[in-house]
């Protein structure tokens, strides 16, 4: 049996590849943990997991600079973790504990950590695209060098705010990157069956004078390289990009969804043949990275998530006196004297 030749490091060096893997693996373990905690009835409300979509969050976040801004949807755990938000803060928020990123006031769908550039997760489809445009306007207006990235699903391409935001960003040449995570399903319905074009984001790009970009969203290297290009373009003052990442949601739409609408064998096919974590682990080996290095990363991530889980479980629920805080900028809620 011929041994496979070890690949030489390319434009992505070993350190960056390990970071790309670490981020993906962290998201995988944390999301699985969120699901387990839901089964234990410790995650309340709803939650929308990114299992199977880890490469996109990892590829973009690892290409960002520290002052870049992320705008996420309700499926935002991955992007929040990828920017370096505390795992305790994320799991704690899902469990609606006082240690949560927003002390239980936002919940799973609204993860926010402005200290890490995560400018919020929004649960009304499309709303955060214009917000990212506004952040980019501010960067251009004040001469800041940060770029806004807005992540959204395939379903978002059929709502008005998507089109308003794209036109606006192109007209004013704003430093914003639109990232469509096409995971095939708009909630419970296949996106192709309800969209006029085959590629819901990329096929609309020409309408706004943008390049049509479709990438393998389950290949963290490809995502990372595409992100780098888009950020270089944005920072050079050359305007926005729209990137469609093909991926597959391995979990249901939300925690209540068993995914019964999927054709038989589809999920198994993606898990077996096109899982971003499995693929990337194989790539690391191809590049000559030793198994024990990979094992160390995985062990560290598991420890981190285990410890975070314990901390979150032991955190108290939020105190009742925060019910009425931070409604207004003065910290309170008073609407009358």
């Amino acid at each position: 049996m011929a041994t496979k030749q070890t690949l030489q490091n390319d434009d992505i060096n070993e350190k960056k590849r390990l970071e790309l893997y670490n981020t993906q693996y962290l998201i995988r373990v944390a999301e699985q943990r969120a699901y387990d905690l839901f089964l234990e009835n410790l995650v309340k409300g709803t939650s929308h997991l990114s299992l199977g979509q880890e490469a996109i969050a990892s590829g973009f976040a690892n290409a960002m600079q520290e002052n870049d801004k992320s705008f996420c949807t309700y499926r935002g755990h991955a992007h929040t973790l990828a920017r370096g938000a505390s795992v305790v803060g994320v799991l704690g928020e899902l469990m609606q504990r006082d240690c949560g990123l927003m002390r239980g006031k936002g919940g799973s769908m609204h993860l926010t950590d402005t200290s890490k550039g995560v400018m919020g997760s929004y649960a009304i489809i499309g709303a955060h695209l214009p917000m990212a445009v506004g952040s980019a306007w501010r960067a251009q207006y004040l001469g800041h060098d940060d770029v806004a990235t807005v992540f959204f699903g395939d379903g978002t391409t059929n709502i008005g705010a998507f089109h308003e935001a794209l036109n606006y960003a192109v007209v004013y040449k704003l430093p914003v990157v639109f990232v469509c995570e096409n995971n095939n399903y708009m909630e419970y319905t296949h996106i192709e069956s309800i969209t006029a074009v085959k590629n819901p984001a990329a096929d609309r790009a020409s309408a706004y004078g943008l390049e049509s970009i479709i990438i393998d969203g389950n290949d963290a290297d490809e995502v990372y390289r595409t992100a780098q290009k888009a950020y270089e373009k944005a920072r050079a003052g050359e305007g926005p990009s729209l990137i469609e990442c093909k991926t597959y949601r391995q979990s249901g739409h939300s925690r209540a969804d068993p995914g019964a609408y999927r054709p038989k064998g589809e999920l198994e096919h993606w898990k077996k043949n096109n899982d971003p974590i499995t693929r990337y682990r194989e790539r690391l080996i191809e590049f000559g990275i030793k198994q024990n290095v990979i094992n160390d990363i995985e062990d560290n991530v598991k420890d981190l998530v285990d410890q975070a889980t314990e901390k979150a479980k032991n955190s108290p629920v939020p105190p009742e006196d925060i019910l009425t805080t931070n409604v207004y900028a003065n910290g309170g809620w008073a609407w009358r004297n």
């Binding site: 214009p130 506004g134 606006y168």
Partner: peptide, 28 residues
């Protein structure tokens, strides 16, 4: 034109852009 800007008829983009700018340091 840097500070007083004509926009398209895009009310969601107008309020969203104002909000994104306000969140990150402006007073639009």
């Amino acid at each position: 034109p840097r500070r007083v800007i004509d926009t398209p008829i895009s009310e969601q983009a107008i309020l969203g852009a104002a909000m994104g700018a306000a969140m990150t340091g402006m007073r639009p």
